[in-house]
Structure formats: C-alpha cells, structure tokens
Amino acid sequence: MKIFNQLKDHIGLVPNPISDKTRQIHARINDASMSISVCPYCAVGCSQLVYTKDGKIIDIEGNYESPINGGTLCPKGAATWGLLHSPTRITTVKYRAPYSDHWEERSLDWAMERIAQRVKQTRDAHYEERDEHGMTVNRTLAIGHFGGATLDNEENYLIKKLFTAGLGIVAVENQARI
C-alpha cells in the first residue's frame, strides 16, 4: 500500500513528491535572538527587529508593535542588513600619508595616537585665549568637525562636549545644517 501511495505521488497528472529538505523547512529566525533597533536612514524612525544567531546578524525587519511603522520598512530600511554586510565595507584603518599615492593599512591604536598628536599640534599652534578686544575666547579655529546626522544623540553629546567644551573647537557642524 505504501509503495502504491508513493507511486501515486510520483506518477500521474500532477504529482507532489515533497523532498525531506522541504519537509524540514522553517524560518531561520525561529531560534534566533532578537534585539530592537531603529532604522539608520531617514527621520521617520522606524523600529526594526534585529535577529542574531552565533554573534551574527541574520535578518533585520520591521517591528509590528511600532506605532510608527507597524512592521513595514521602505527599501532603504529593508536594506539595512545589506548595509551592515556591504561587500565594500571597510573594517580596518586606512592611512594616506601627505602627498602619497596609496593607502596604507594601520592599526587602530596607531591611528588613535597619531590623531591625538595631530589634534594637539594643530590646537597648540592655533589657540586663541583672547580676541582682539581682550575678551576671553579660549578657542581654536583651526580644527573643524562635520558630522553626519545619523550619529546617535549620545555621540553628538560627547562630540560637542569634547570638541567644544574640552578643546575649544568652535567650528563644529552637522549635516543638520545642510
């Protein structure tokens, strides 16, 4: 009988022989852990669910519970996984010496130290304690900052705090202007 049934499945007009692999199919996020994120693109602020397994993000989709997006996403939001896993994403520090015609790989530590040194040099060389009217200004105009408007609020806070309050850099600007 079993053989007959199997034959019936495999021979005839519209057979439906289902493979073992198909039988076992399930969504890959079933046993993944989930964290809540916000879409990094526009300012609508869509809530995203980030599914991870073994320390890797396996899927990002909209959050049904959000009163903003109710599970939906736009193409950019839907491509967030692709953004995180972009094939051309840089993951190491690249350094270009003055007048050089090529990039060099450098360690993160080296770059951090070098940047700190350059900041100190430039700041020391161009620091104004008082302006021409004698008013205390405690600033340097020789260093600037352009920020993207996808930096977190906390990051912006730290940038403003260190650069302006700590280093006296006033030319701190953001994409929010343009």
Partner: peptide, 15 residues
C-alpha cells in the same frame, strides 16, 4: 545541473 540528471526519472508526469 548535469550531475542531477537522474532526477528526471524521479517522477513520471503524463502532462
């Protein structure tokens, strides 16, 4: 996928 040619003989579909 030539190596899977034998799958052709997995079923007989008259239509």
């Amino acid at each position: 996928r030539p190596e899977r040619f034998y799958r052709m003989l997995r079923v007989l579909k008259l239509r």
